[in-house]
Design a protein around this nucleic acid. Structure first.
Lengths: 242, 242
DNA sequence: TGTAAGCTCCATGTATACATCGCGGCGCTG
DNA sequence: CAGCGCCGCGATGTATACATGGAGCTTACA
């Protein structure tokens, strides 16, 4: 066998197929045939089926009526709506956190994350790798502050879609100039959010989280309004069908 | 073979297992073993795996770290939070419907549904079967009015959980007296919702939808506060772990 | 020429044998 | 007695052969 990563064939198939779907190599609407994929990847149908099942769980594939799988299509409107839903869910998490109250250690953890993010700005050019990681951690923590497993799970699920993640579009290198301003504004929102939650201001926390998600939406709309040149460098948008 | 319903073994296994999980026969945390289930249902492991995978998509099973599946546990708090999430999502659908505008034929369809629900009340004892069907149809239509496939999908997904459906707890026969009042209040909310959407009052529509979902939450809390006697007749609550 | 029946092929469904891997018990050894 | 390592079992992972069933084509008959 080849010496790829990961242990099982199903894992490798999952990773390979996910990559192809997200990369736009398998456009939305494409029917995936077990035999063809099995031959292509040099494994049997069984691990292929396992991989396809998991991709269906990730909402990257739809089950066809009479059996089989189809690559899900994402139009621009779907991206926008998905981000809207993320905003709504994160808003709910923030509101619940405020309403139910957050244990002080957790609040301290959040404030520490904010300081760490501040520190990333100190360098000349921002270390996007690090920022993405911290930003994702902050959003995950905010979900946990709701003290609702159900909500955490739903947020994690929607966030797994590549273009809906709070850290999507950050790896886009095209408009470094605007970046600093954008990130600084986002950080202001982070601070206000924690403040609102700490003050038990549920409505304010929810509104802030929703508006915070709007930044991602503005990014998408900006990227799509400027012709292909910009979109080229944005892997998260390769999946778009139109 | 036995002459159950449905065509494939995987389908039958799916239905059988879902029934056992929802019925509380397989309590939360139970590890499901392919071989054991295969022997028990008299089929091979392959269709069992297919069924387990689909149950994971339905969020009734969790994948165990090292492979395998575990029945998901639902505590009371999870039920409440799930209903909260449904309310939030339906609220978003109602708001988007109001903000984006709804085609008149669709609004007419909604008003027609409201009239049909009114008609159900005419009889001496309400036909709950019929009411459930119409109520579910109304909620589905409201989701569609958002004109967002993503949102529809998420609502449908969360609504698939037995205790989160807008028609859950309606089959409970225990407090017929209060029922008429409850349903009539719900219908008032339905009417106000459509009115708000038609008037493009996004905030009002969202608030109303959220409050409407609270009715389900009150039902749960009422049922749980009255000892087992009441809970017996409520199949939707059999899944509760505690 | 149109229609309907039947056939054939292809894709998924199913069973089963074998592989692999992790874990726990048991025994050996220092 | 303690610690290490080996062995074996049980669970999932994988391959493969065969079953099934539907769609499209072809052919024969009206």
């Amino acid at each position: 066998m080849q010496e790829e990563k990961s242990s099982t064939h199903a894992q490798r198939a999952l990773i390979a197929l996910r990559k192809r779907i997200l990369g736009g190599e398998l456009p939305g609407g494409t029917r995936l045939f077990e035999v063809a994929l099995a031959e292509e990847l040099g494994i049997s149908r069984t691990p292929i089926r396992a991989a396809l099942s998991r991709l269906a769980e990730e909402a990257l594939l739809d089950r066809a009526p009479g059996g089989g799988f189809v690559v899900r299509s994402f139009a621009v409107a779907d991206v926008v709506d998905t981000i809207e839903v993320r905003g709504v869910l994160e808003g709910t998490a923030a509101r619940l956190a405020a309403e139910r109250g957050v244990p002080p250690p957790m609040l301290a953890e959040a404030r520490d994350l904010l300081r760490q993010i501040d520190r990333v700005f100190f360098g000349q050019s921002v270390d996007m790798e690090e920022y993405s990681k911290l930003n994702a951690a902050f959003h995950r923590l905010m979900a946990r502050m709701s003290q609702s497993d159900v909500l955490c799970r739903e947020i994690e699920r929607i966030t797994a879609l590549p273009f809906a993640s709070p850290s999507a579009f950050l790896d886009d290198q095209s408009h470094q100039a605007a970046l600093a301003k954008t990130l600084s504004a986002a950080q202001d929102q982070h601070r206000a959010l924690i403040e609102a939650i700490a003050n038990r201001e549920g409505f304010r926390a929810e509104s802030l989280a929703r508006e915070h998600a709007r930044a991602a939406r503005r990014n998408v709309e900006f990227l799509l309004s400027h012709e292909a040149a910009l979109r080229e460098g944005v892997p998260s948008l390769a999946i778009l069908s139109s």
